[in-house]
Design a protein around this nucleic acid. Structure first.
Length: 112
DNA sequence: CACGTGACATACC
DNA sequence: GGGTATGCCACGT
């Protein structure tokens, strides 16, 4: 399993993502202090508890990363819809639903 | 050390 | 929008 501290950062960061908003793997990596390591996020998320906001993480183009039709993709789609996020063909409009974190919040909550 | 692989990203066509 | 090509980083073989 990947770095424990990284998982903690991910969970903490995800706890700040408001309901109805989503983040990309890349932005999540940035907020965790790991720029350029988007691919690492997925690896870590596999090991993280299901009650975190893992379903609010999408690819930069807004698509669900799991193969369309797979069980995980379906679950994520459902949870996003429950959040009030509009999901069309396993894709979300990032301009509309993409989370733009408040800078001050980041400094206070995530001072790494 | 050379590849292959992945819950990725960006640029182009 | 889709499809291809590169770049990227961590890990395993």
């Amino acid at each position: 399993m990947p770095n424990k501290a990284v998982q903690f950062r991910i969970e903490k960061t995800l706890s700040l993502v408001p309901r109805g908003k989503v983040v990309s793997y890349g932005l999540l990596a940035d907020l965790c202090g790991l720029p350029g390591r988007a691919r690492m996020m997925g690896k870590c998320l596999r090991e993280i508890s299901i009650d975190c906001n893992w379903h609010r993480v999408l690819r930069s183009d807004g698509k669900i990363a799991f193969p369309a039709g797979s069980e995980k993709a379906e679950e994520q789609r459902q949870r996003l819809i429950t959040d009030g996020v509009l999901v069309k063909n396993y894709r979300v409009n990032m301009k509309k639903f993409g989370w733009t974190p408040d800078l001050l919040t980041i400094l206070v909550e995530l001072e790494y």
